[in-house]
Nucleic acid binder design. Structure first.
Lengths: 344, 344
DNA sequence: GATCCATAGAGAAACGTTTCGAGGCTTTAT
DNA sequence: ATAAAGCCTCGAAACGTTTCTCTATGGATC
């Protein structure tokens, strides 16, 4: 059996519009694509028919015909944890908003280590972090799909990167503590396998160096970013014979845990002990004392990613660009000059 | 000029595979769709060619030919706020995970009040909350697109709903407080325009009624879910001549604010005052005292939504179903029997 | 060995759009 | 008025699949 030419249940096609408006299919196409060379008389007829029949062009057919796709895939690792929630949603929000502004569809791809991605039919890809995704990234690049990476600075690949100045952010935090008069400043680092943690560590030591404070290895505690290890580190830190008067913690969520431990050790914050975090996780606001922290420009980062991806898609630019976005020190209530400094 | 038949830059088509394997296009199609009636010899040849040429079928062409789409749109209002972050990401995570299990693509649609949605070409829609989206929901239903609504129980529309038992959850919270010995129990409600807030309020009053405690209108405080109004309500509450000994707050984020106010009023929690929240927002864990709360089954809800949407898409089911998922009281440290009760 | 049947494969139509080449109609200039 | 020159419009090919129909092939049965 030959399929019926116009299947009414399937929806209205451009053919129906053409018939209704009494023009050819190509004319309808030119009208809906806003081409100029259509007579006003026809244009109006077509637009009327479109409205009357509630015609919506088939995206698949358009893609097939043009070979172009307005779909942007966002590849996001499937972590858990509260900061990740905040972080991920902030990215999604920023990217989603700008995508609709650019009339791009946002396809969300939550990955665990080894889930495959269908690259075909996607107009561009944003990799949010490339942990466990490096493989996919290289594949996308090999397929010449417009791609940008956010929150990671990939040196060795020809790809757009939009990262964060972790080093500078960390340095600004430590600078601030030094400015308050602290000399014995500890650092609780994140997982040094991650670029971010390593850079924050570097910023910490550079800031000390700049102010001629010798780095005390006993003041450095390495963790995996977990609250559990943060707690252990804090307990070790407060048990030191000559404990620090302040700490720069590589994440807010760990900093919150450190705060809790400080309380348990009878340390008053910020009177007895100062803490700076990193991330500007909103939970930092809700404790008994609000946390001074380094803000990551998440929204800016996500918006930049779409903007740049769009340049790539529309071929306004072909050379990859790599940038680091500046952070901002957000001063709240968790720091004070050290007790000795105030007395002296 | 006639376009070149096979454009090498555009990628490999089924035609190339057919030629490479020495079979017809339809045979290749049958192989990649796992149809049975293909001789082993040919099947192997085709699969080899597919692998060698790295053939990936064009999704657009498949969609066009079959009329089916494996894209699921998630329509999510574009709010802000920390709980929303957690909530939204938890939904996205649940939905995204199950979507990849079902081999569905997830299209994310962040809406503000009046952004249009392209319904065409989407295989199904999940509305997460329908605030400001009712219009779109009706449109989808009219277009006979498989649709499910989560976190809202839409009585008057023939659509799948997966909601939460707010009333029962609220009642369990108040029950618990009564069980501890509290009689003077206040309620700080959310925005009563929302279904959730209204149902939580109802659960509160029903629980009191069940235990023959007369409802004191002076103990009910209405807010818009904001921390600001929560603070105002708490201040009013603690200034009452005969203040309550416990409060059930319609959201964790407000409960946290109430806790802060309690501290300012010199009230010890849970010694002097008990608090129960709603949501199981992880921030509730990080304060000086962890918050007892009513957990929403967010992951369950999102998974159910995909499962049911899939039934609709595959026509396993046509009649809409509406369900309410049970909540769970999570007992932590913010409640105790009232002081009077302990002394007596 | 001839007939029949089942089965596998080839070919072609169809999905709904864009876009190209060609022709028709209107306008302008001579 | 006629020819040249532009616009518009139309028809048709093309995008890459799926799927229907028909034919060829192979094996089984008598």
């Amino acid at each position: 059996m030959v399929r019926t030419k116009t299947n009414p249940s399937k929806g209205i096609s451009i053919k129906d519009v053409a018939r209704a408006a009494g023009v050819s299919i190509s004319t309808v196409s030119r009208v809906i694509n806003n081409f100029t060379s259509v007579k006003q008389k026809h244009r109006i007829k077509v637009m009327e028919a479109v409205k009357r029949l509630k015609f919506q062009p088939s995206v698949s057919a358009q893609r097939l015909a043009t070979g172009k796709s307005n779909v942007v895939a966002l590849v996001l690792p499937r972590y858990e944890g509260i900061f990740y929630s905040f972080y991920a949603l902030e990215l999604i929000r920023g990217i989603g908003t700008l995508c609709s502004a650019y009339k791009l569809d946002l396809l969300l791809h939550l990955t665990d280590t080894r889930s495959p991605i269908n690259l075909k039919g996607v107009g561009g890809i944003i990799f949010a972090d490339i942990i466990g995704n490096r493989h996919h990234l290289e594949e996308a690049l090999a397929g010449h799909i417009p791609t940008v990476v956010i929150n990671n600075y990939v040196e060795d690949l020809e790809v757009d990167c939009i990262a964060i100045d972790n080093e500078g952010g960390a340095a600004s935090a430590v600078d601030y503590l030094i400015g308050l008069g602290h000399k014995r400043i500890a650092h609780i680092s994140g997982d040094l396998v991650t670029q971010a943690a390593a850079e924050r560590m570097k910023g910490y030591s550079l800031a000390l160096q700049k102010h001629n404070i010798t780095l005390n290895q006993g003041y450095i505690f390495k963790t995996d970013y977990s609250r559990g290890q943060a707690r252990a580190a804090a307990e070790k830190m407060f048990s030191l014979a000559n404990p620090p008067t302040a700490v720069f913690v590589a994440s807010d969520s760990m900093a919150l845990e450190v705060m809790a431990v400080a309380r348990e050790y009878g340390k008053n914050i910020p009177g007895d002990f100062s803490i700076v975090g990193f991330d500007d996780n909103p939970s930092g606001l809700y404790g008994p004392v609000s946390l001074t922290t380094v803000r990551q420009p998440l929204v800016k980062m996500s918006q930049e990613s779409v903007k740049r991806l769009n340049q790539l898609i529309s071929k306004e630019r072909t050379e990859p660009e790599k940038i680091k976005l500046p952070t901002e020190l957000v001063i709240r209530d968790s720091c004070q000059p050290p007790a000795s400094f105030r007395k002296g």
